[in-house]
Simulated assay, not measured.
Amino acid sequence: MTAIAVQAQRLLARRRSKKSFFETFIRSLIILCVAIAVVLSSISVCDGHWLFANGKLFGLWHFCTVSNQSALKCATDLRLSNINGINVGMTLVRSVVSLAVVVAIFGLEVLMVSQVCEDANSRRKWSMGSVFILLSFVLSSTGVLSFLVLLKDYITFRGFTLTYWCEFVAVFLFFLNGISGLHINNITHPGNRVRKI
């Protein structure tokens, strides 16, 4: 009787492990949105100019001033901005945000592998990839918030550049897709259904 029950559970697991079109579509959409977030975050980190205020352009890598001829004069020495602790603070910000991109790329790869090479561990790989995406959200949001704290005296809503908003959207997408990835894995996990039966 026990052997028959085990075989029945295996048969149920095999039948239910086949993904529906809706589940495949949602997982593909999550992968696409994570890829978009990685691209946006990469562009934002590479450009690095996030805030323009009072004729000064503050970035992750450079500090720039606008001269009378409207030409930018940029320097890598951020201490020229005369803001206390900006050199150390901005080093932390760019390190955390750059690490977030690396973690997100790794998470994206794990998500893609879990879908392309479907095996017994594909759902576990999907969960691990989603956790990496959430970790990327934590790192990138820490970087964005640290940037705001460092330059709180210069912040204006209209002063934020397009690359800053790219990073802001990327942070939102990392959070949304990390949570969605874990949720879809929980509601479609065959083990949960077998236990209910």
Score class of each variant (00 low, 15 high):
K56H: 14
L57K: 12
F58D: 01
L60K: 04
W61G: 06
F63Y: 15
C64T: 07
V66S: 08
V66M: 15
S67N: 15
S67K: 10
N68H: 10
N68W: 06
N68Y: 06
A71F: 02
L72S: 10
C74V: 02
C74G: 02
A75S: 14
A75K: 12
A75R: 10
T76F: 07
T76N: 07
T76G: 13
T76K: 10
D77R: 06
D77N: 15
D77E: 11
L78P: 11
L80E: 10
L80S: 12
L80K: 14
S81W: 08
S81D: 08
S81M: 14
N82E: 09
I83W: 06
N84P: 03
G85I: 03
M90R: 03
M90P: 05
L92F: 14
V93Y: 02
V93C: 08
R94K: 12
S95M: 12
S95C: 11
V96M: 14
V96N: 07
V97G: 05
V97W: 00
V97L: 08
A100T: 03
A100F: 00
A100D: 00
V101S: 04
V102H: 02
V103L: 01
V103K: 01
V103C: 00
V103F: 00
I105H: 02
F106P: 01
F106I: 15
L108M: 06
L108R: 05
V110C: 02
Q115C: 07
V116L: 11
E118T: 09
E118I: 09
E118D: 09
E118P: 11
D119F: 04
S122W: 04
R123V: 01
R124L: 15
R124P: 00
R124N: 09
R124M: 12
W126I: 03
W126G: 13
S127R: 13
S127H: 09
M128F: 13
M128W: 08
S130P: 02
S130A: 15
S130I: 04
V131C: 09
V131I: 15
F137N: 00
V138P: 00
V138Y: 05
V138A: 15
V138Q: 07
S141P: 06
T142V: 12
G143V: 11
G143H: 11
V144D: 10
V144A: 15
L145P: 02
L145G: 14
S146M: 12
F147L: 06
F147A: 04
L148M: 14
V149W: 08
V149R: 09
L151D: 01
K152F: 08
K152R: 15
D153T: 10
D153F: 05
D153K: 15
Y154K: 10
Y154C: 07
I155N: 06
I155W: 02
I155L: 07
T156F: 03
T156E: 14
F157M: 12
F157H: 13
F157Q: 13
G159S: 05
G159K: 03
T161W: 03
L162T: 11
T163Q: 10
T163W: 10
Y164Q: 01
